[in-house]
Design a binder for these strands. Sequence first.
RNA 1: GGAGGAGUGCCAGAGUGGUUGAAUGGGACGGUCUCGAAAACCGUUAUACGGGCAACUGUAUCGAGGGUUCGAAUCCCUCCUCCUCCGCCA
Length: 423
Amino acid sequence: MLQVQFIRQNPDLVKKRLAIKQFKEIGLVDQVVNLDDQRKKLQVENDNILAQINSNSKEIGQLMAKGEKDKAEMLKKLVASLKSSLQPIGEQLAATEKILQEALVKIPNLPSGKVPPGRSPADNELVRESGSKPVLPSGALPHWDLAAKYNLINFDLGNKITGSGFPVYVNKGAKYQRALIQYFLDFNTAAGYTEYLPPFMVNESSAFGTGQLPDKEGQMYFVNEDHLYLIPTAEVPVTNIYRDEILKEKDLPVKMTAYTPCFRREAGSYGKDVRGLNRVHQFDKVELVQLVHPDKSYEALDGMVEHVGKLLGSLNLPFRILKLCGGDMGFTSALTYDFEVYSGGQDKWLEVSSVSNFETYQTNRMKIRFRDSNGKNQLLHSLNGSSLALPRILACLLENYQTENSIQIPAVLHAYFGITEIR
RNA sequence: GGAGGAGUGCCAGAGUGGUUGAAUGGGACGGUCUCGAAAACCGUUAUACGGGCAACUGUAUCGAGGGUUCGAAUCCCUCCUCCUCCGCCA
């Protein structure tokens, strides 16, 4: 969430930037400022009464020690009346803080100055295109047909065991997943990221920290009995590793990578973009997370984009990088680059990675800070990106590497997979 | 799941109702000393939200949240986590 102090100091800038994000409830900005004014006033009153109660209580202790019971009794009465006058103020203060917090979490992150205006995906800015579309044999198949032809993925079986959107990977299809995960993790650790294998369920605090809660409950699977959420991305548990921590400047940047399955209810998505592996409820992903000095986060973002680009390049997949426009960005992001890979069998671009800088939006919720050279605690910037989301990568690898009667395996994966083609 | 024990500052650890934000030791940092270092000695060493131009100052926080009390790290309740034993189990 945004820092109240920043909103107070720059209300007009905040409103202007929120408009770029197509945010409708601009009124919340003034509301937050007003509520914070109220909060301050109430806190002063509240603290003053508490101070009186505290000092009188101390005196009672001293009087009792001296045996001056009568005076002590009088003071007790005084404190009792102070307490009754405190009660309504305390309640008002708590209520105001609650409303303030509720308003604050409804305000999305501000888009950085680099974000192009625009309302929809059509307004996203093409940054770079790399590689060339494959020349496929006539009668080239989409991945769901290839998956059936070579017995790699069984969608019907998933329907039977669980439901739609839970594919079962079979035989070489299963091993392909494993090879990709291993390759991605090795690629990331070689670049200095520390590997983690976090829990696949998180508590409410963690889900709040990265911005999934409140409001996006509907997109997560929830285990009612234990009050836990299945993670929609490794970003959630991994970023929360440093929740409530104050880091040393010399330990920056923190670079982490993790493989996890991801669980998404994808409520409200229908249509043909859900075919095959294009949109599923459970999928594998390797994620990158960085916590960096606020002065260096855009440099770090460029570095992550570069890193993911290299990874895709190593697989010889044609891809393009889009800078998301204000209207298409996520709630918590300040700047996002999407990677899309060309899917030869479907003749369309599939999003396989999203790399974002969240600046202090998440770290303010999680209180992830560092001690700067002046000894002051400052919020870090958090960033994350996929490297990569498996299903769509697999879809593109199957489609783009198909021949008449085989699927070739990219050279960098031969060692991981143990074979050079699927027949 | 059952029974018992425990959760205090960066760490260890004291503290069972009254100047305790918290003894003591260690660590870290700064200083003195030294050519430099070690040792020794001195000092500093939580966070958040407020008030004040500032010096400074108020409040809250001893796993979390409630409660009792004039006053809670200390008493009570709920929850969480850890340890020991039993049960179950990959």
